[in-house]
Design a binder for these strands. Structure first.
Lengths: 340, 340
DNA sequence: CTGTTAGCGCGTTCAC
DNA sequence: GTGAACGCGCTAACAG
């Protein structure tokens, strides 16, 4: 590792001058600066981020925090990568780098918050968390800027897909096609993630506003967001006698995917026998079975909004406590018209 | 931030003793240690990773390097997350944290390698790279341990799916079902990623060993790995006159997915009219259309192997230059039996 | 067993 | 316009 002392010696100036020249300060002669910079590049100088961070009390590091396991947004969720990607792109443009955290580490204490302090991260993006850390997190959030994505934690700014509205629109859409009895496979309702409850609420509100009939048998709560969870829940729905619904709104595309083998096994076809509509905008929905209708979560926009919020906080500005990002209806061919 | 000086004052000892006590050194009285630890936890002490890194010349940071754009493994590849996840789990258990790098950053010089030095990362995982950095990377690799995944860079240890063998087996499998004329939609052949060329080679070798006929029209190189690229390539294949093949081996599940709408539009059904086989083990292949046959890349194992290799290098041990991980045939129902 | 000293690499006073 | 001295928080070497 070559240091500013090496450069100083080579350029025949003092370390302090090197520092100034390299950091674009004005109190240094242009000729000296050019000379210093030349020496620096010639030696292949790379500043030591630790030393700088230690001195400046700024690490240019942003933590991405999540916990493995549990039922909220899994790491392999279709949303995660595009979200992270757009977030990263923006933060990077501002000079920040991303540090991955999780609270599964076998480190004693498994304290994600401590890690944030230890690494001196300038900010944190919360993408998935179990309920454990909530309190510690809230306290930490007073010292270090945080944003959560699709996660609601009291006192921490959040960027969240407008689940309620999208779910409401899902029902409206099916209604406009003539459906009068609409079932819902909800996601888990008991986690920190708000997707499950919010989508259910939107579904119910629309049902009420449109004066649609429904009873308990039109709704089932899934254990998780994965295909197999969806399949299990879907089966429960179908098993109930006096089944009247003509359409099913799944809280995730993954669950809808799980329903496909079930449909096939039962000799049901989509959309002729049953209209299906999902949530997330997974890639397969575009290509499979003539195209499945879904609500596309705007992953890139979520990432951008998170980045923006964090950057504003880093600048010391106030931010909205909750930013809602609309999900877009992508109408394809898994919902049929019903002649009323 | 509370420092060891704060603890020292509170505990009535010197900073050095605090350091020793906290780091489990033996040259400190058990009573003093207990007292120090008590004071530390009471004050909520968290060690400063920058200071420690500066002093110890060890950052406990591992870089995950990739570049956006280009045609090799995209960030939203089904492999990426599980791979990263298993890698992270192991590295974390050893005390390392993950730092994300990419060379798209608008930082002047866009030099990923410089970042590695700047952040003093202890090791690097290369998951996707454009060709640009190759030389700088090779030089850097002499100073800092690296592993590449599904990427072949001269002089850098690699963990790679056994593409040749899997492609070979794909042909064998189709042969065993009675297919005698087998087409191949290859991935891009000109990138750093070896998947395209290796799978093509395996396909060709099997064809030769089994004395199967084939001509140029049985093969097409796709522009990318995505569904639309696959669709385009697939169309080219179908458009050729004298089409004799009864099965198509796609170099990626994503491309196979792109072929689905094409099949439908043309009134072709799978497997009755055409047998299809993919590569990667994407989740949808399990649920869609009765199940599609594919070769599952063992993402977790890839991640584990990368971690192991890196850890061994970190320990100063030698590692195999190339570790091959087999891909597993997952036979489902997209390939039919042919009566010869 | 404990404390003093020094230095990791850098940026910032404040003299000159 | 330039340089000497200091300190960020921590640990290693050496004294006591």
């Amino acid at each position: 590792m070559v240091t500013i002392y090496d450069i100083a010696r080579k350029a025949g100036v003092s370390p302090a001058t090197v520092s100034k020249a390299l950091n674009g300060r004005q109190d240094v002669n242009d000729v000296t600066r050019a000379h210093v910079i030349a020496s620096a590049t010639e030696l292949g100088y790379v500043p030591n981020a630790h030393a700088r961070g230690l001195k400046m009390k700024k690490s240019w590091l942003v933590g991405v925090a999540y916990s493995d396991g549990g039922v909220s947004m899994p790491l392999d969720h279709p949303l995660f990568l595009p979200l992270l990607d757009s977030f990263k792109r923006i933060m990077e443009a501002e000079g920040y780098e991303l540090l991955f955290f999780s609270d599964t580490s076998s480190l004693i204490g498994n304290n994600m918050v401590a890690h944030c302090f230890s690494r001196q991260v300038d900010g944190v993006l919360l993408v998935k968390l179990l309920d454990i850390e909530q309190n510690a997190l809230r306290t930490a959030a007073q010292d270090i800027p945080m944003v959560s994505c699709n996660l609601l934690i009291d006192g921490i700014p959040a960027v969240i897909t407008d689940n309620f509205r999208a779910a409401y629109q899902a029902v409206e859409y099916l209604y406009s096609l003539g459906h009068r009895r609409i079932a819902h496979v909800a996601g888990p309702l008991d986690s920190l993630a708000v997707a499950g409850p919010e989508r259910l609420a939107g579904y119910r509100a629309a049902l009420a506003d449109l004066h649609l009939e429904s009873d308990a048998s039109d709704f089932v709560e899934s254990k998780g967001w994965a295909p197999d969870d969806g399949a299990e829940a879907f089966l429960q729905l179908l098993d109930r006698k006096d089944r009247l619904f003509t359409a099913v709104f799944f809280a995730s595309d993954a669950m809808m995917m799980g329903a496909m083998p079930v449909m096939e096994r039962l000799g049901l076809s989509c959309p002729d026998d049953l209209s299906l509509i999902g949530f997330d905008g997974a890639q397969w929905t575009e290509y499979v079975g003539g195209g499945y209708t879904t609500f596309r979560q705007q992953a890139e926009l979520l990432g951008v909004s998170c980045a923006r919020s964090l950057l504003r906080q880093l600048d010391g500005d106030e931010v909205e406590p909750i930013v809602r990002i609309p999900a877009e209806l992508v109408a394809r061919h898994s919902c049929c018209q019903i002649i009323v």
